[in-house]
Amino acid sequence: MNKVQNNKAWLLVLPVFLLVAFSAIIPLMTVVNYSVQDIFDQNNAYFVGLEWYQEVMSVPRLQDSLARQFFYSGTVLLIEVPLGICVALMMPTRGWTASLSLIVLALPLLIPWNVVGTIWQIFARSDIGLLGYVINGIGIDYNYTNNSVDAWFTVLLMDVWHWTSLIALLCYSGLRAIPDAYYQAARIDRASSWAIFRYIQLPKLQGVLIIGVLLRFMDSFMIYTEPFVLTGGGPGNSTTFLSQTLTKMAIGQFDIGPAAAFSIIYFLIVLLVSWLFFTTITHLDKDKVKEQSHD
């Protein structure tokens, strides 16, 4: 075996590397430097070791917003993924209704985050918003500005409205990619529609679902604008998520040291989760290749 080794193509990656270094690596290193110092101004910075990390992890405000963030991302995934699959299964497959439903589903994805926030901010108000007015009209006391349960309900509903389409569209394309032969075989076996879903459609959707879950996790984990516009993080701190806590700390209070320590922890969590997803995806592909080579 005489394989020619030629790694010159790596030089073509150099410009990208320089860009990433400028926009990500060097700033990240600076953040690490900030996180071990108490900085008053450019000439007054004192080395404090890992004190900020210790402080950041023991402050309840940050622990709470981290817990809230995980709960939020988890709930969002639990609602949107099954709902998206159901929507995709019920969508028409051909004719003008198919095009129409694709367009309708794509619409929320095109609306900018702060506009989504504004829409729901007004829509859910109990005095002038239709949703808030109707909920109060049927006898349920609902006010998202001073009840934290209502605020959570509204923020979750907004996210479901905004992003379920993404899962639905991904699943729709995944479903269309299943060859008809599978369904024919199922019909010959007189498989029930549940069996078709469980043993044909769901396994074939695995790939798109992993990508959908990854995208939704990352998006919901870094959510900022929508709750910021809708509730401003309130009432109290009940809908203040990680990125908002971080922004308040870094820009509002100018606590650069603790904010840097906190963003490093935030970064490590995101890195861990993304790596887990990435490894799962790549290893699923590898397993498939192995299976096929065994056949």
């Binding site: 060097i26 290193m29 600076t30 430097n33 900030y34 071990v36 110092q37 900085i39 910075a45 080395f47």
Partner: peptide, 12 residues
């Protein structure tokens, strides 16, 4: 501007 310290320099 990068606010280097000796420990972080050793780390990197």
């Amino acid at each position: 501007w990068m606010a280097w310290t000796l420990p972080t320099a050793i780390f990197f």
